[in-house]
Design a protein around this nucleic acid. Structure first.
Lengths: 342, 342
DNA sequence: AGGTTTCTGAGGTACGTCAATCAGAATGCC
DNA sequence: GGCATTCTGATTGACGTACCTCAGAAACCT
């Protein structure tokens, strides 16, 4: 015989359909003893709610908002593309997504945008912004309003967010460190570390992981203090030029954040890009080409497709009050070299 | 207003519901001109079939069989576990899976098992077996009977399988090669390559990729002829012991297939496991522990969760006659070191 | 015992699609 | 024009669950 339905449960438990429904949907008005009887029947028959039918009957709609940094970052661009692709594929499953661009560098605008979200028309929010106390408060407000919230790419701990979809950046930094040390091979040399901003949580954590590995496993390599480009390509070119000139024994460059365009351009100018071991983050058209050209040796990345699909799955699960399948939601730290480019 | 339904399409096209249904489900009995009218309406309104309702009404059942090698291989074990996990998660989506274990080394039994599949009760088959002409024929028979077939892990080209779920093993070998060369660092040395069988398609392809990279990029390193363990741990121990003794300048070991237990044990015995750069395939409890212990330097793997989920998605898509979302189904070649262990 | 509150049963409608029926319209053919 | 054939319309009943109402049963209080 086929899968058990609510009717079978009702018969098995010796109660009516209405009672089974009340128990399954945690509605009030059922005695504890009866609840137990129903749950026992569910167990015995191995009943699983038919999500197709349930979603149909419930007229469920998943309206999500993705709060993403505006601007021309390639990483955010690929993320958005993946989001569009994923939502198109899920349109048949009643998922609709609205992207809310925010100026990530202006905390006030971010908070204003978060507070301006049309809460009653939203079933979930994914947020990718730097962590500030005000953002934490805004997230807490969303949560209080009953809207599930996931942090995307960069975590918002202590904000009450339901879930973090992204990688462990300390591990990512350690991974970069090991590759850097082993790829350089030489016993001695200097390593340059660049990022757009050391204020971002990601960069701090990556540097932490990177340093600990370098200190522990490659004591002969000297890691220079972080250089910040502050989202300014010209500044990047200038500081790189200076650093390369100042350290003739420079062996590697670790780019922790965005701004790879300026970095690569600057390194090309020095004429030493091929001799250096260059490791960057996030696979984008730019870094992909640099990998193919042999300018970048390895990219540490997270699959944007997984990121958005995981975020959507988690938000849906939170809406349904269902548990999530942890193993599937763990975003891996991908190592990409020319040979395993996807 | 909400999403358009079949009723809206009917109104828009000026036809009845029945006609819309016939067009949508490619049933006969509609004039070409009317078909076009309906399709135009679908386009105009942006109608997308509600899969929840469709699957409910259709009483769709996806009954799949996974033909997997029997035996105690850790990789197959993790694959099975992932399969169980995935099907449990999809139970609510009417997917049921039966695992059919076959003695992979005996082509006749494999073919017998394939031919014994209860075709009328099956909606799709995933097959992970070595490629032989008889297997190709059996797959062709399944296809002829209208059963979608996907090849899993190891491809079955020219068999008419609908899809291959797995990695490009030439690239996997190249990836291993680059890591081997760069991790060794030294200009000279020997590299041992071991596998259980050089008859398997995977091993041949991996060796191909590995050799081409080593020859092109690391000419100082000498790659020794492949050693086959033939699934015999004792033989593995013996040949490893011999090889290590014969080549004092051995710098690395590349394990292309299974049999890592015997390999690690043999290498431990020689006392040189820490000095050697060891690269293996497939992340299993064994290789994971070896990574943590610093015995293996890197593992090239494919995520078993992705493998089975992709196989299930593709089979479902083939059943529904729907296209697949290529980007999501491309299985990546994962590089795992201690620091980015998932 | 009476009344009040808390549970439960029975029954219905709806969700969007599939699948089937049957009658009627349009078309093609001679 | 008559007839057979091919299309089309209108209608209906599933599918499994959600959610609502209303009446009646059971338990609880004084």
């Amino acid at each position: 015989m086929g899968k058990p339905t609510v009717h079978d449960i009702a018969k098995e438990a010796g109660v009516s359909l209405a009672t089974v429904d009340r128990v399954l949907n945690a509605r009030p008005g059922v005695r504890d003893k009866t609840v137990e009887r129903v749950q026992a029947a569910v167990q015995r028959l191995g009943y699983v709610r038919d999500t197709f039918a349930a979603n149909l009957a419930r007229q469920r709609q998943y309206r999500f908002a993705f709060v993403l940094p505006e601007g021309e970052s390639q990483f955010v661009g690929t993320l958005k593309a993946a989001l569009v692709e994923a939502t198109e594929a899920q349109m048949a499953e009643r998922v609709s997504v609205r992207v809310v661009p925010v100026p990530a560098s202006d905390p006030h605008s971010v908070v204003r945008a978060l507070n301006a979200l049309p809460v009653p028309l939203l079933d979930g929010v994914a947020i990718m912004t730097p962590e500030t106390p005000q953002v934490r408060d805004a997230v807490a407000r969303l949560k209080a309003a009953g809207v599930p919230v996931v942090a995307l790419v960069s975590d918002l701990p202590n904000s009450g967010r339901d879930h973090f979809v992204g990688i462990n950046n300390i591990s990512a930094g350690s991974t970069a460190g090991v590759l850097m040390g082993r790829f350089i091979g030489a016993a001695h040399g200097k390593v340059l570390v660049v990022t757009n901003s050391m204020l971002a949580r990601d960069s701090i954590e990556r540097r932490l992981g990177f340093d600990s590995v370098m200190a522990a496993s490659f004591p002969g390599l000297t890691v220079l203090p972080s250089i910040e480009s502050r989202d300014d390509p010209e500044r990047m070119v200038a500081v790189i030029r200076h650093a390369v000139a100042a350290h003739p024994d420079l062996a590697g460059v670790y780019s922790m954040g965005s701004g790879n365009r300026g970095l690569l351009q600057a390194l090309r100018e020095t004429g030493r890009i091929r001799d250096l071991t260059v490791i960057a983050h996030e696979l984008t058209p730019l870094t992909r080409q640099a990998l193919l050209d042999g300018e970048i040796d390895a990219v540490i990345t997270q699959n944007v497709g997984h990121l958005v699909r995981s975020a959507l799955r988690v938000l849906r699960a939170k809406c349904d009050g269902v548990g999530i399948f942890e193993a599937q939601e763990r975003i891996r730290i991908d190592i990409v070299i020319r040979e395993n480019l996807p």
